[in-house]
């Protein structure tokens, strides 16, 4: 096995990376560094350019402009050599439903030139790892969504990759299945595998990512660890107030000066503050009586909505 060619341990380096489809610019000049061993996330609403970026990194989509280096190689020239060291878990499962669970792994391993005996051994290990060993001989078609996703993750590991690309790894899974996938991905991270994932789930990003970028409209709008992003773009705590009555708007004016930032939504008012309980006390001191009060810690979701807006993206 060749050692990863890295400069300062950087496995993926993008500078001014652009992807255009005709007139549409999906990725609009982004700079990214992913270091060996970290879990790196691309966070953003639908259409932000996350998947296009992932496809360029996966060497199945040539960049329109800018620079991209993966393990020191150029995807335009060294696609097969780079792909040989990547593991790809796509957004939509593309397993063969007619083959067995095991055959899906062994046939895929052969695409990497892995000898059949080694492929069988690795398939057995990986099926243990993703807790599908007892389903090894059954067809893929009747498996649940969570099982298929775990099998796709196992398939992505079959070539012992240096980098694993996961495009929305838990979208569409039920809570139990999501937690199992997270737990397995966390194990991979502990084993030193570099994970690059896209997600629009804030909890997923907070759970898994050491570092992430928030993308919107093809650009990177923020970058950092989940904690630093929350510190930079939100406050420590958030107070959610619901007032009985027609609109919340009427009450907003009476809250002036209570918070660093006030956001008025149709059904509630959000106060971004450092001390939640203090703010609530102040609200009561102003003789306001909200129907409900919730004090919570600020989350990546607050950062995300602050940066990318609340407008629905379809």
């Amino acid at each position: 096995m060749v050692e990863p060619v890295t400069r300062d341990g950087i496995l993926i380096q993008a500078r001014g990376l652009v992807k255009r489809f005709g007139d549409f610019t999906a990725v609009d000049g982004i700079d990214v560094d992913v270091r060996a061993g970290e879990a790196f996330g691309f966070l953003g609403p639908n259409g932000a350019g996350k998947s296009s970026t992932m496809r360029m990194v996966g060497c199945v989509s040539p960049p329109t402009d800018g620079e991209l280096q993966i393990m020191g190689m150029d995807p335009r020239r060294d696609g097969p050599a780079i792909r040989a060291r990547l593991g790809v878990c796509p957004q939509l499962d593309n397993l063969d439903p007619e083959l067995t669970v095991r055959e899906n792994l062994t046939t895929y391993a052969r695409y990497f030139g892995i000898p059949r005996r080694v492929a069988r051994e690795r398939a057995a290990e990986l099926l243990d790892f993703v807790q599908l060993a007892e389903r090894a001989g059954s067809k893929v078609e009747p498996l649940s969504g969570g099982m298929k996703r775990r099998l796709t993750i196992a398939r992505a590991m079959v070539n012992e990759p240096d980098i694993v690309l996961l495009d929305e790894p838990t979208t569409g899974l039920d809570p139990q299945a999501r937690h199992l996938v997270w737990e397995r991905l966390f194990r991979l991270k502990q084993q030193g595998v570099t994970l690059v994932l896209t997600t629009h789930y804030m909890d997923e990003a907070e759970q898994l990512c050491d570092r992430l970028v928030v993308m919107d409209g093809g650009r990177i709008v923020a970058e950092g660890s989940p904690r630093t992003l929350i510190e930079r773009y939100s406050t420590r705590e958030v107070v959610e107030l619901r007032f009985a009555g027609e609109t919340q708007e009427a009450f907003a004016g009476k809250l002036d000066g209570l918070a660093e930032r006030i956001e008025v939504l149709p059904d509630r008012i959000l106060l971004y503050v450092t001390d939640g309980d203090g703010a609530v006390a102040e609200v009561h001191a102003r003789a306001l009586t909200p129907a409900s009060v919730l004090v919570r810690r600020s989350s990546l979701e607050d950062v995300f909505l602050h940066l990318t807006g609340r407008t629905l993206v379809d």
Partner: peptide
């Protein structure tokens, strides 16, 4: 699409 994401050309 699965095959294209491997070293296969």
């Amino acid at each position: 699409f699965a095959q294209a994401s491997t070293p296969l050309r």
